[in-house]
Design a protein around this nucleic acid. Structure first.
Lengths: 345, 345
DNA sequence: TCAATGGAGTAATACGTATTAGTACGGTCG
DNA sequence: CGACCGTACTAATACGTATTACTCCATTGA
């Protein structure tokens, strides 16, 4: 059995074509450094490479510090969750589609695979550049990557590190404001906005949109925003709000959908009917497309975010492609839904 | 701005600790080759490494032909399909879970990303080993990998290359036979098995199971198997079969679910009710969990297949783990469902 | 005193490709 | 005839780590 036949390398081509390995490298690399080469030699090398079925070794290529056509995707949690409603999938689909279109492979650094965060995150260097998915930023590790010139793109707006992190996110401010304006247009003047306790730019943006729109409409801002992880959203709470004159609930949507689910449970438990008794809107799209009436709110263009992020990363890798803005917010199309109704006087 | 601060390498540690790079490599590598080292030196090196925040460069590690803790996943079509019902997802979820448990990262060579097949497939060498998903085998390319000693594992039984390809599949023969036996037990003696035209071991296995069980039960095998891509499954065809005395349909299930969908359409169009008029079973699980009664048949343990494949690949990478069978078939649990009813005499 | 032994670590090299500085050669010009 | 130039390459080296053969030194034994 001994040593299996190895795949051909540049040195083999060189031997066959009667030139040096360096020449082979120059020819196959498209001679981007402007070395003088005769056409005859070029053809001899190409022909030999073809005949031997040469394929560059990606590892060596990368070590010699050229490109690898490999994009990293880093997630802090499993990329293929089982029990959690899946918000990554459409993003990954977009990433894959665009990466394929650009001829790039993907390397997934998936949740909690190994070792400490630092070790794991530094492994991303195996790729030419890396996309990051997740609500939070390990500032020191990411800062280190950034400082060393390694190209990264976050999915989701980021304010950390003085806003130096390139990202592609959703314009939640406008989309959230639009939802509130829609409610106001339907006659609602007494709202509650349920926000998860977690701090993240995407949450802040939603809250800002809600507050702005409420202020613009001259609504009372007092008590408008309620921070909750869902556990205190009981039937009693909701009933009290309703007795208090609240006619509409706006709920933040995040990866887990915890607050949204809690709200639905509480509404059912309290016997409050949507949208007859109370209107309901979600800032985002509830995960898993639950049965029942379509919830009003807005769509998060996850797939397009994935695509745009790959394009941004590609342009960072190759400044020749033009230098697009390193921060990009995509508009989130409104979803009319069936859970907003006009207030009856 | 100049040259960004580089991440530390072994040479830096060596300088700090006052030893050679080779010594650093030996210490950090756990001294698996049995070099004589004093404990003091070992600690000095470890301490320096810690202080500098050293992390091995995965590319260089790989080039020096050691391990990389990187498993490849090769698919011939997009791994995150949008319109096609998704049979990859649970497999990928299983792969990810097991890979994470073993501290491995994943590199995805995803459908039609670049260049010719040969080029793409050779890129898998970037990983320590590679899983393949797909109904077919590009024999020459895979043979080449195999011959060169590169560890690969297919998901799905493979007969190509004299059965030398390691795989983890489903025991479709037994599962299919069990389904037919169930129908026979319910009094059915006149069946049709609808098989897709595509050739693949997983299809052959199902057919074999069906034929065997039919023969065992003494059913007429003539006309039992119908090859179709679904386009000729009209209402008229089904009505004719029924008039002919057919009381049960068994349908192959594949990635696309084409034949299954065609069957359902035709049944509806012909006004044939399931299971009152005709019993229906699917050899596998119809994609996307369609609404309506649960279809009888069997479950394909995709998630477990993913996990088992990773385990097999890991053991190929590290023969020390013991040498499990290179071919493994997982049992597919029966699904009772509601679409099989007893024949009324 | 010399050879043998064992301990501690290092020099050298391999891995496969990219890049850069330089060489060899033939011709041209003043 | 030597200085100079353009052409067509190649030698050398870098990239960062793993491995192996080897050196150097101190001690032991006869």
């Amino acid at each position: 059995m001994s040593r299996a036949r190895r795949t051909p390398r540049q040195a083999d081509i060189a031997r066959v074509a009667g030139v040096s390995q360096a020449t082979v490298s120059v020819v196959l690399g498209g001679n981007r450094t402007g070395v003088r080469l005769s056409e005859r030699t070029r053809l001899r090398v190409l022909e030999a490479a073809e005949r031997l079925g040469y394929v560059p070794d990606p590892v060596a290529t990368r070590l010699a510090s050229a490109r690898n056509n490999l994009l990293g995707v880093y997630t802090f949690t499993p990329a293929f969750p089982i029990d959690v409603a899946d918000s990554y999938y459409p993003i990954l689909a977009g990433i894959e589609a665009e990466a394929a279109a650009l001829g790039q492979d993907l390397i997934m650094f998936t949740g909690s695979s190994a070792a400490g965060d630092h070790t794991r995150i530094r492994r991303t260097r195996l790729a030419d550049g890396c996309l990051f998915l997740g609500r939070h930023v390990p500032v020191d590790a990411v800062g280190e990557l950034l400082a060393s010139g390694f190209p990264i793109v976050y999915i989701g707006r980021r304010t950390e590190l003085d806003g130096t992190i390139p990202y592609v996110g959703g314009d939640y401010v406008s989309a959230s404001a639009e939802v509130v304006a829609r409610l106001v247009g339907a006659g609602h003047r007494h709202l509650r906005y349920l926000r998860e306790p977690d701090e993240a730019p995407s949450s802040d943006d939603r809250e800002r949109g809600v507050r702005t729109a409420a202020a613009d409409a001259g609504l009372p801002v007092d008590g408008l925003v309620v921070r909750t992880d869902g556990s205190d959203l009981t039937a009693a709470t909701l009933a009290a709000w309703r007795a208090d004159g609240v006619t509409a609930l706006v709920v933040e949507e995040t990866d887990t959908g915890a607050v949204f689910h809690a709200t639905q449970r509480a509404l059912r438990a309290a016997g409050i009917s949507v949208p007859d008794d109370v209107s309901l809107a979600v800032l985002g799209r509830p995960p898993g497309d639950p049965p029942g009436p379509e919830i009003s709110g807005f769509e998060v263009p996850r797939r397009e975010m994935g695509r745009a992020a790959v394009r941004l990363l590609a342009s960072l890798l190759d400044p020749g492609l033009g230098d697009p803005a390193a921060h990009r917010l995509l508009t989130c199309p409104p979803v009319a839904g069936e859970t907003i109704s006009a207030v009856r006087p």
